[in-house]
Amino acid sequence: MSDSKAPAAPSPKTNRLGLVLQDYRGAKSTLCAGCGHDAISAAITQAFFELGVDQHDVAKLSGIGCSSKTPAYFLGRSFGFNSVHGRMPAVATGTNLANRQLRLVAVSGDGDSASIGLGQFVHFLRRNVRMLYVIENNGVYGLTKGQFSATADVDSVLKHGTRNDLEAIDTCGLAVELGCDFVARSFSGDRKQLVPLIKAAAAHGGTALLDVISPCVTFNDHDGSTKSYKYTREHDWALHEIGFVPGYENVDVEIAAGETKDVELPDGSHITLKKLDEDYDPTDRLEAQRVLHRAREERKIVTGLLYVNPESRSFADALEMVDRPLAQLGEDDLRPGAADLAAVMDELK
């Protein structure tokens, strides 16, 4: 973790902007006590506090669902937009194009992104819009009393005994396949892994997909569920111990040879990945597919940074969008002159 890399600066009470953790909180959550989503909100709060992000530069987006309520519960000083079920990616794309200076943080759910919004999800990844895209994945539709969602594992069982007959859609597998340049999976109960992953995802130059298993305590936390706290803990296959050192800290990253991999991002920050059981290279897309398929076969939940390509070309770059927010462009920039119109009219004569 970044703290352990910089022993001279122990866990700070204030960050580089002179703000305290409390300043990064949002409204009080209305979700069920013990909901995984609240732990993720807390992890986002902590990550952005520790990074010292100016909240006015952040726009929070979400679709509809339990998960999509959460942007109200973190970064209370940021603008937020709770949009339409499954179609947050379109709203986020428009926001990014209108103002590429905004750092987008989006929260969606497995229903929002893998069911109604799957088409939007796929095209968003294809476009590589710069955004931290968190899917709070609990395998059920919590707001409508806990039916299976499209990410529920085959043969997992609902509270009242209904068995799921269908194969799960794996958002991480899809993302790797679609060319997403930052794909990670984590667990809401593992803040040690989640916080540095959020920091790394926030530093990424394109879409950073972070699928977080986030147990639903009301509808999907029983025996027979494969998205419960107990099941996730017992079947968690962590690829590495992850750390993040932001670029502004300007600290030499010490790498223990053979034990830790280091991925440098264009903004000068570093992701450090300490080896656990076996070697894993997160810059190999095929390797990412392989571990995801293996995890499915072995009924494990593989967590960590599955794939990263630090040299990511975002949608705004591909479109050569201006750096200045479009909202700040005036008539001088936007309105061609009378002579230009006359020239067009002449062509049509």
């Binding site: 726009a59 987006l61 937009f81 949009s83 379109a90 709203v91 986020a92 794309t93 428009g94 926001t95 990014n96 194009l97 209108a98 103002n99 905004l102 927010p325 479009l326 909202a327 700040q328």
Partner: peptide, 13 residues
């Protein structure tokens, strides 16, 4: 997309 851009202050159609 238009709604997201309009929210962020661009004229979008």
């Amino acid at each position: 997309m238009v709604v997201g851009a309009g929210w962020a202050g661009a004229r979008a159609m």
